[in-house]
Design a protein around this nucleic acid. Structure first.
Lengths: 350, 350
DNA sequence: GTGACGCTTGGAATCGATTACATCGAGACG
DNA sequence: CGTCTCGATGTAATCGATTCCAAGCGTCAC
C-alpha cells in the first residue's frame, strides 16, 4: 500500500509538503498542492491512520462498552452513539460485555490498549480495578444508562421514577394489588434503582413489595423466565409482574405461556424499556420508554466535550409510560396517563 | 502513560529486552525477565497497540460491515462474529451501513484506513469501486449473508431454497393461492434470490407470481408497511404475504393491523429470518430460520484462514422452515415439515 | 545595494513498539 | 590455553506519519 513517501516521490516534493497538503496547512504553493493531489489520486493513496495516531496521540475513536448487544435497547443506543460520533468526526468501537464482568474488562483493556480517545460505558457491575484506575488516571469517560456511584465520571441516563409512579397508578387503577418485580443485578444501578422506585411508588398506594415478590434476574430472557416460574409456583402468585428490562419481560411472557396462562387475564405484565416489538406481541406490552436515541447522543456530546477540553455535563432525561394492553383493558377515560415532557428534567455539571 | 522505555529504565535493561520478555522470546535470562515483569507490574504498563501495529503491520482486528444493526438478524450475526474472532485472538470493529451505500463506503474506507487485517462484508449494494478495488488489491475479505457476484471473494451464506419450497408447500396445503412477496433491494443477492426461489417453488404448484404481487422493499420496516398497504389496496389482494426479512414482516404486521384485518384469518404472513420475538407476536410468525451463529463463526474462520495464509473456503449452510401460526392452523398431521439437517450442504474451495 | 521579511520547502527528530545485527562473556573441547 | 559456540543483551534501523527548525529565495523598503 502506498505510503506518504511514495506520494512525495511521485509529486517531486518532500514528505513534509505532502503532509502539509493533506492537513490543509496554509503555506503550500498552489503548484505543489496540485502535484501532490495528483499523485495522491493516481496512487490511490490513503493516509495510514495507525501511523498518524502514533504521532499525534489521538485516534479519533470512542470506545463503547455495552452490557448486551442482543438487547434492542442497547443496539438502539449503540446506533445513536455511532451516529452522533460520526457527525463529530469520531468513529466508535463497540465492546459487548454480555453482562459478564470478565468480558467487560476484556473490552475495556482492549480499548485502552488501542488508545481510544474516550470511553463510554454502561457498567455490568460495580466496576473492576481496571476501569476505576482508568477513570482515576484521567481517561475521558462517561457512563451511560448505568453508572458506578462514587466515581467522578459524568453520567447520562434516564430517570424512570415518574414513569414508574405512573405505571403503579395504572396497575392500581386496574385492580392489581399483588405486584411483583423481576429485578436486574443488584450490582447495577438500573438493577437496584428500578426496584427502589417501584417499591416507593407502591408504598404511596399502601401496597407492600414482599421479598418473595422480588425476583433476582440478570437482564437476560432466561432469568425472566425462571423468576416468573418461581412467582407462579408461589402459594399466592402475584397478579402483576414488572420486568426491569425488555428481555426479562420476554422470558416472563414465555413462562406464562408455557403454563397455559394468559396475559393480562391471568397475570399482568409490564416492562422497563420500550422496543418496537412490544407493539406486536400478544398482547402488546405496556412499557416504560426511555429516550434512547437522545441518551446516546447526549453521552457522545458529553464525552467529546471532555476529550476536547471542555467541561462535561451529566444529563438526566425523563422516561415515560406507554400504556398498551398487557396490564388489562383501561377504562377509556383514564387511558391516557399524563406524562411529563420528554426534554431534560435535570442538568448538572460535573 | 508509561511506555516501553519507562519499563526498560525501571528494570535496568534495554527496550529490546523488555520487548523480548513481552513477546515470550526465548533468550532472556530468568533474572532479567523477573525484573521486567516487576517493572511492568509496578508501572501498570500496557503495550501501545498503535505503535505495535505500525511496526508489525498487523492490527489483529477484523472489520465487519453490516447492513443494519437494528435488524436482530444482523446483531446476532455480529455477536457470533465477535465471539469467534475473540477466541482466535482478533477484535472486531463493526460498521453499520443502515442499508445506505454511502455509509457502507464510509465504513469500508474508515476500516481500510485503520489497516484492519481483514474485512467481513454483507454488501448493501452491488459494490462501490472502493470495495471492489480493495478486493482486487488483495485485502483479505469474506462476504457474509449477501455477496457480490463476479468478485473473487469467499462467500459464507445460507441457502434458503429448500426452506422456501417447504414454505410454499405449507402455504399451498393451507389453501393459499394468491401469494405475494415483499422483496428486498434488487441490488442485493438476498433481495433477488429470495424472490427467485419463491417464484420457482410457486411454479412447482402451478402458481403464478404476478408483478403486482412483487412489492419492492428495502429490508426496513417502513417499506414492509408501505408495500403491504399497496397489496391490500389491490382489487384482488393476495391471501398470503412472504416478507424477505424480519423487519419488513414487522411492517406488514403493522399495515394489516392498521386496516383492522387479522393474521392469518384475513391474510397469511411469513418471513425470512427467524428471531426470538416471532414466538411472541400476535400471531406467532412462521419464518425461515438461518443458522445465524454458525454463519458468523464460519465467516470469521474463513477470513482468518485467508489472513493467516491458508486457503479460504466458501460455505453454504441450509436454512429451515419454522412453522408457527401466521399462515393459518395446520392440520395436526402435516404440522411438522421434514427439514434437512442443519450442517453444511455444500462446501467449495475458492 | 542591502537588510528584513515572508512564503515555501526540506531535513530530521519523534511517537512506541519490533527485530536484525553486533557484542560480550562463559563454558566446552581439542 | 586458544578458539568455537551459544545464550543474553544492547544498539540502532524501521514502520508512516507530523512538525519544529533552518534555509532558500523573491520582494520590498530604505
Amino acid at each position: 500500500m502506498a505510503s506518504i513517501k511514495d506520494v512525495a516521490a511521485a509529486a517531486g516534493v518532500s514528505v513534509a509538503t505532502v503532509s502539509r497538503v493533506l492537513n490543509a496547512h496554509p503555506s503550500v504553493s498552489a503548484d505543489a498542492r496540485a502535484r501532490v493531489l495528483a499523485a495522491v489520486e493516481s496512487l490511490g493513496y490513503r493516509p495510514n491512520a495507525v501511523a498518524r495516531s502514533l504521532r499525534t496521540d489521538q485516534t479519533h475513536t470512542l470506545g463503547l462498552v455495552i452490557s448486551d448487544v442482543l438487547n434492542p435497547y442497547f443496539t438502539e443506543l449503540a446506533r445513536s452513539v455511532e451516529e452522533e460520533a460520526r457527525s463529530l468526526g469520531y468513529s466508535v468501537i463497540i465492546g459487548n460485555a454480555d453482562e459478564r464482568p470478565d468480558l467487560q474488562d476484556h473490552h475495556v483493556r482492549n480499548l485502552l490498549d488501542r488508545r481510544i480517545d474516550g470511553l463510554l460505558v454502561s457498567p455490568t457491575d460495580g466496576g473492576s480495578p481496571l476501569m476505576l484506575d482508568a477513570a482515576r488516571a484521567g481517561t475521558p469517560m462517561v457512563f451511560v444508562d448505568r453508572w458506578i456511584p462514587g466515581v467522578d465520571v459524568p453520567v447520562v441516563r434516564a430517570d424512570g421514577r415518574a414513569a414508574v409512579q405512573d405505571l403503579v397508578a395504572h396497575l392500581h387503577a386496574l385492580g392489581h394489588r399483588r405486584v411483583a418485580i423481576i429485578a436486574g443485578p443488584a450490582a447495577t444501578t438500573t438493577g437496584s434503582e428500578r426496584v427502589e422506585a417501584f417499591r416507593a411508588a407502591l408504598a404511596e398506594y399502601g401496597l407492600p413489595l414482599p421479598d418473595v415478590y422480588i425476583g433476582q434476574g440478570d437482564f437476560q430472557a432466561a432469568s425472566g423466565r425462571r423468576v416468573t416460574e418461581g412467582f407462579l409456583d408461589l402459594p399466592e402468585p402475584p397478579d402483576a409482574v414488572f420486568a426491569a428490562d425488555n428481555l426479562m419481560a420476554l422470558g416472563a411472557l414465555d413462562a406464562v405461556r408455557a403454563r397455559g396462562l394468559r396475559v393480562p387475564d391471568d397475570i399482568a405484565l409490564a416492562a422497563f424499556d420500550d422496543i418496537p416489538w412490544f407493539v406486536h406481541t400478544d398482547p402488546p406490552v405496556t412499557a416504560i420508554a426511555q429516550p434512547t436515541g437522545e441518551l446516546g447522543r447526549a453521552a457522545v456530546r458529553a464525552l467529546v466535550d471532555r476529550i476536547e477540553g471542555r467541561p462535561a455535563a451529566s444529563v438526566t432525561l425523563a422516561a415515560r409510560l406507554v400504556v398498551r394492553r398487557s396490564c388489562g383493558e383501561t377504562p377509556e377515560k383514564t387511558r391516557t396517563i399524563p406524562t411529563p415532557p420528554l426534554p431534560p428534567v435535570q442538568r448538572s455539571t460535573t
